[in-house]
Computed example of a mutant assay.
Amino acid sequence: MYTLELAQLTDLTICYEIIKEGRNFQKEQGFEQWTETYPNRDTVLNDIQSKKGYVIKANNEIAGYMCIDFSGEPAYADIKGKWRSDTQYAVIHRMAFRKKYRGTGLADIVFKMVEDLCIKNNIRNIRVDTDFPNTRMQHILKKNGFINCGVIVFQGGKKLAFDKLL
């Protein structure tokens, strides 16, 4: 059984460990989207303190971490391209899974849980960005109904911008 829950301060260490595992996984794939300075431990702490950090649990074990921000993303205001809707949206940032859960289809399950959370909060629009070399995430996004809307600049670099209308 899988659940999506707000992360607690007691989850900070494991959440940041998952981010570090994700950073290493990116390097193994030959690119660096996440650096040593972003996302860092303080980024995750801020997510948790502002009630934007979420853990994905598999049978009560933390299997992943992500930020779901219902207040938007300022960097998304300037897009080379066009978002498909101007309605309020949720942003997904910093999605990462523990190594043993990669390749299990957990990302698909998580996207469905995020959609359900958005609908429960009367949000019908989800946005996300990823680096150009992160073809694995691009594949997962497209498989889950996200559409490439253009390019944004986030954390100093150009990113592919995707949205999904619910």
Rank of each mutant, 00 (worst) to 15 (best):
M1L: 15
M1T: 09
T3H: 15
L4H: 04
L6A: 09
T10K: 14
T10G: 14
D11A: 10
L12V: 06
L12Y: 08
L12K: 12
L12D: 03
T13P: 01
T13Q: 15
I14M: 14
C15M: 14
I19W: 04
I19F: 04
E21K: 07
R23T: 14
N24P: 02
Q26W: 00
K27T: 14
Q29Y: 06
G30R: 11
G30T: 06
E32K: 12
Q33A: 09
Q33S: 05
T35A: 12
T35P: 03
T35K: 11
T37I: 09
P39C: 08
N40V: 05
N40F: 03
R41Y: 07
D42T: 05
D42Y: 02
T43P: 09
T43N: 15
T43E: 04
V44W: 08
L45D: 08
N46A: 13
Q49A: 12
K51M: 07
G53P: 15
G53V: 10
Y54C: 08
Y54L: 13
K57H: 05
A58H: 15
A58E: 15
E61W: 04
I62Y: 04
A63C: 06
A63F: 11
A63Y: 06
G64D: 09
Y65F: 15
C67G: 01
I68R: 12
I68G: 07
F70R: 12
G72F: 00
P74N: 06
A75M: 07
D78P: 00
D78G: 05
D78F: 07
I79R: 04
G81I: 04
G81H: 03
K82R: 07
R84L: 11
D86I: 02
A90Q: 02
M95I: 15
R98F: 11
K99F: 01
K99M: 01
Y101I: 11
R102G: 01
R102S: 03
G105P: 09
L106V: 10
I109Q: 10
V110N: 03
F111D: 06
K112W: 00
M113I: 04
V114M: 05
V114I: 14
E115V: 06
L117C: 08
C118N: 05
K120Q: 13
K120P: 01
N122M: 12
N122A: 08
I123N: 01
N125Y: 13
I126T: 00
R127M: 06
D129G: 00
T130G: 01
D131G: 05
P133Y: 13
R136Y: 03
R136Q: 07
H139W: 03
I140Q: 10
G145V: 11
G145K: 14
I147H: 10
N148R: 10
N148A: 11
C149V: 13
G150W: 05
V151W: 03
V151N: 04
I152N: 08
V153N: 05
V153A: 02
V153R: 12
F154C: 10
F154T: 10
K158L: 06
K158S: 08
K158N: 10
K158I: 01
L160T: 11
F162N: 01
K164L: 01
L165Q: 10
L165C: 08
L165G: 00
L166K: 06
